[in-house]
Design a protein around this nucleic acid. Structure first.
Lengths: 252, 252
DNA sequence: CGCGACTTTGACAGATGTCAAGGCTTGTGG
DNA sequence: CCACAAGCCTTGACATCTGTCAAAGTCGCG
């Protein structure tokens, strides 16, 4: 397996290790997982509603959106995944897709057979636990999206989403100012926060004029992290990225 | 253990069996789970944000809401649970609560220690799988709520929610007309669908005048199931209640 | 250089929120 | 059995946010 093939599994493993404890042998099982590369062009719906899948997709590069639609065809993106994320890990337990998947930009994924995931989860309970935990964290993110869409203003919705992505890209550091990639269009962004692309555009302008952040040419430029956090009412706790879950599982 | 104590576990087991396969012995493990009863009065927030819990709550009677809040204190209910549901099964894998729990009416629960759940999940991989699958189905419901709140009109939101609850109460049968309990207030309903209680009231009036359903004195009276389904753009697939998941897992 | 996709803007429309008042239920205590 | 209080429901008038439609501007790729 080439360098390019193994890197995404290492990213995935790193994410698992930030929340779960795995032995050397178990770590090797993750890194040894098979993956068949696939590439999708922008806007390609590569898993359709109700389709039965026999693999999960690990994002190597690009951005994937999970979405549902209303009867008029309006889309609501319910989850977004970037490099190192296993997009539909849940499909191992529920292979009939309850929501569709769309490439938000040119995207490369590795298709990991369910059968391989099930095998290592059964052989190593700690791996089963780690994967189960990933699904639970995804659900916590989903839960926060409901709050975002249901009870926040346009500015707060967008700011909150950007804060989440910055954290998930691990872009937040000491500095109040930094960049991270945002590969999707304003239309996609609108579908993520339950607004219209026109209104998203106006709201981005407000965030720019407030000196919070600028979105330009597919890169998000955070001008003031503290301002963005305040506007978005953002509390990173739900992302479980602080290692607290790990410390607790060690204690148990 | 008395009759009253075991019934809720039987309800829970029935739900598990509709989606997963368990041997006699494994079924006995579920039924033998310990549970310490607790009762909460209406509006009691019995799990707070960030609190660390060491048990999951199985609803015996009443209704529980999981919720998040914006900075102004506005609540968004992200999930609702009724008798037979394990409210925060996910907390086994993520004990630090990322969202709070509230009793929406007088509610009785059984507190099931995480330790007991972990033990049977480790001892019986099929149980681990069944519990993992329950978490995944909860996430699918959550996902549908994002779509509901983000991309549907007030009428459709309420109709959709009512369709979901009717299905989960297993109240849908041959007849186009039937009842099911709705124990929460219009205020709670507003918090479920991301609207105002005033607007919920107006919208319920519209649904009543259209001959779709009537909500009165804590019971939802469906007048025309087909109308309600059409208004709510409801497709029950995501609930995984048709046994398809079970058939597929048997095939595998 | 030119085309197609994406972004930006303005004017106007429509849905939902806010505020405020009154009516109805329900449960409790006399 | 009645009266009262508290919480819940209902309604109207008005405010605000977000959506719709349409046109022009910009960027990126062939």
């Amino acid at each position: 397996m080439s360098f390019l093939d193994t890197t995404p599994f290492q990213l995935f493993l790193t994410k698992l290790l930030s929340r779960s404890e795995l032995s050397r042998e178990e770590q090797a099982e993750i890194l040894g997982l098979p993956g068949h590369p696939a590439q999708y062009e922008t806007s390609r719906d590569f898993v359709k509603l109700g389709e039965r899948v026999d693999h999960s997709c690990l994002v190597v590069e690009g951005m994937v959106g999970r979405f549902g639609q209303n009867q008029e065809g309006g889309r609501q993106i319910t989850a977004v995944h970037v490099a190192g994320d296993m997009v539909d890990l849940h499909s191992v337990m529920m292979p009939e897709a309850a929501s569709a998947l769309q490439a938000l930009t040119v995207t490369t994924v590795l298709r990991v057979p369910h059968e391989a995931l099930r095998r290592i989860a059964y052989a190593h309970p700690a791996i089963g636990e780690a994967l189960w935990r990933e699904c639970v964290v995804d659900a916590a993110v989903l839960s926060e999206w409901v709050v975002n869409v249901g009870r926040r203003t346009a500015q707060a919705r967008i700011a909150h989403l950007m804060c989440e992505l910055a954290c998930r890209y691990d872009a937040v550091g000491e500095s109040d100012q930094f960049d991270f990639p945002f590969l999707a269009t304003q239309n996609h962004l609108a579908d993520m926060v339950g607004l219209t692309s026109v209104h998203v555009n106006r709201t981005l302008k407000e965030l720019r004029e407030k000196g919070a952040m600028i979105l330009n040419r597919r890169v998000a430029n955070v001008i003031s992290w503290s301002k963005l956090v305040q506007i978005g009412q953002f509390d990173p706790n739900y992302l479980q990225m602080d290692g607290s879950a790990l410390r607790e599982s060690k204690a148990a």
